[in-house]
Design a protein around this nucleic acid. Structure first.
Lengths: 343, 343
DNA sequence: GATTCGTGGGACGCAAAAAGTTCCACGTGG
DNA sequence: CCACGTGGAACTTTTTGCGTCCCACGAATC
């Protein structure tokens, strides 16, 4: 049942509005019958003409009956209305979720894709594709942009789906490298993204887990790293994924005592090197070059992309710790976050 | 799942064509990729422009990818296509059924409504409503029509749903009265129908089960009956229901020996007084005034309306026995009839 | 009993979207 | 090197959607 709804949203998205509109008309009529066109149009905020088109259809379908005193729903219409209720709720839940999340968490724009990334791999792809679309729109204003990106599977999904022609844009990693899987490193993502966009890119080769002294000396002496860091600090768009703190700590092979410390302080989420607790406090930041928390306020647009019920706490912590302008996530994460935020 | 499909067919039927079209495009591309617009449009019998609109949409949705050698489906498109297959099959089954039945039984037009009248009362209503719509269209050509109707619940459902303004039309019962339930008699149906249409009507008061002698004397002496019969013989539209032979025989309270004879000869279906066997032979005809089998060939349009899996054999027998121009039935009956016709 | 209000139905006309048509630059394969 | 089929785009025609106004009619109120 859910799969059908998602399928339809994908293949005939224009149906949703129409269906919801007809449902609303039917419902309104059932509550206020008999009611005339003009009054109904007023109630629903529709023009009389556009309402008439729908009403004529519903009449032709035998769901509405007309009398001299106005229209009312037929028996069949009442049956349909009852069945339709569930369906529309499912269909609408998402836009409702988007609004609720946007208001609760003070995020300018929330986009939610149906499903759960944890369960269906395709949802993560969908998040990536949607984020790609949003980024693409942002970049297409003709101005020069500096885009900072993080790593991760979701970010990779975004990069894979991006196309465009933005020769003025520069793509940089938000922070220095992150071990293991090359394909998911910020540097790699930045490269792929830049190539897809026809943009230029700069890379930042700073290993993780270096001591502060070594890092400082690199920053001082390595003019290549210096110049890239300077560009990063001037980024006006930041796109980042979100990881679960425990996963990321293990992934980065942090020292056991550090992991213990993170746990103790309640770190649940991680984004571009900063570890956050559920209440939004920053618990720890990896010792690396690139964007710092204090840099975020100067960035024009911060886009977070992450999904899956298991990541809800992580996403929430990151949102609370930093600012967030656009969030692209999935239904499962959104519902869980809303539940947590209320508690 | 089925309920959603029916719901959508009812509330947003215009989606169906669109969805099927997009599905067909996706499928065709997946089979012949890479393929270009023109070739694809040719294959699908679409104009290039209308195909392009759909193709652009599918591209925007990330289901189709374009290269210099043509278009092909993306991974996501392939997933969608797979899921879509079941769905479209369900959606299309009916139009497929309509075509198959129309060809197999040599009926000009077959209209099938989803569901089973035996199971859901609402389906019978739907059949009536659809038939009403068709009749209404037929009558609205401004010409003078004589409409002959039979009795039965489905016919009553049709009459209930009819509206129009056809003062030139005359409605008559196809044959003489049929005992018991007044509301379902042909005379009553004709009256209701005429009133709903704003048409005039004539009634035929001839009791069932009279001897041939009495019938003949009535026809000779009763000038009222004579004149109505003359009108009936000139009918250009016949709308009739179909009954199961055994039900009708019991309903008409035929003599036990006659019932036995009917059974022996394999009567399964009944329509306006004629009993038919499954192979299309006419087994028996009630002794009454009105339309005879030989009159049917002079009638312009014969519309049969009946549904329910249990009536499949009856409908099939009647179709084979007489001519049928339009058949309105339901999915269950249609499937069963097709199965029988193949066997 | 007259009047006024709201009803559904219908008609006109403009604007925007859809669809038909045609052209062109380009990559591919012979 | 050329012919062919491609995608992209521009232009024109047609259709449709929708705003607007009007009318006949029944009901309720005065």
């Amino acid at each position: 049942m859910d799969s059908i709804i998602n399928l339809q949203k994908k293949i005939v998205p224009e149906l949703t509005d129409l269906l919801v509109q007809r449902y609303q008309i039917l419902r309104q009529v059932s509550h206020e019958s008999p009611i005339g066109r003009r009054a109904l149009a007023g109630k629903l905020g529709l023009s009389e003409r556009v309402l008439r088109a729908q009403v004529d259809f519903l009449k032709k379908s035998g769901l509405l009956a007309f009398s001299t005193s106005g229209m009312s729903v037929t028996d069949e219409g009442a049956d349909i209305l009852k069945e339709l209720a569930d369906y529309v709720r499912k269909l609408q839940d998402i836009s409702f979720l988007e609004k609720a999340l946007s208001e609760t968490l003070q995020i300018g724009r929330v986009v939610i894709l149906p499903g759960d990334s944890d369960q269906e791999e395709v949802v993560k792809r969908e998040i990536g594709r949607t984020a790609a679309h949003i980024l693409s729109k942002l970049l297409s204003d003709g101005q020069r942009h500096i885009v900072a990106v993080s790593g991760g599977t979701t970010m990779a999904a975004m990069a894979a789906n991006l196309t465009g022609s933005e020769p003025n844009t520069v793509v940089v990693p938000a922070r220095g490298g992150l071990g293991d899987n090359v394909e998911l490193q910020a540097n790699t993502i930045a490269t792929v993204l830049a190539q897809k966009l026809g943009a230029s890119y700069r890379q930042l080769y700073v290993p993780d887990c270096v001591s502060e002294d070594i890092l400082n000396s690199i920053l001082k002496e390595d003019v290549g790293v210096r110049s890239v860091v300077d560009i990063i600090k001037k980024a006006d768009i930041l796109v980042h994924g979100v990881g679960r703190a425990s996963d990321m700590a293990r992934h980065r092979r942090l020292a056991p005592e550090l992991i213990a410390k993170l746990e103790e302080k309640g770190a649940v989420g991680e984004a571009f090197g900063q570890y956050c607790a559920l209440d939004g406090t920053q618990v720890y930041m990896t010792n690396n070059a690139g964007l710092m928390l204090q840099d975020l306020q100067h960035i024009g647009t911060i886009i977070g992309i992450a999904g899956g019920k298991s990541k809800a706490a992580a996403i929430l912590s990151v949102i609370r710790a930093s600012r967030q302008d656009i969030l692209v996530t999935d239904e499962a994460a959104a519902q869980e976050m809303l539940r947590m935020a209320k508690a």
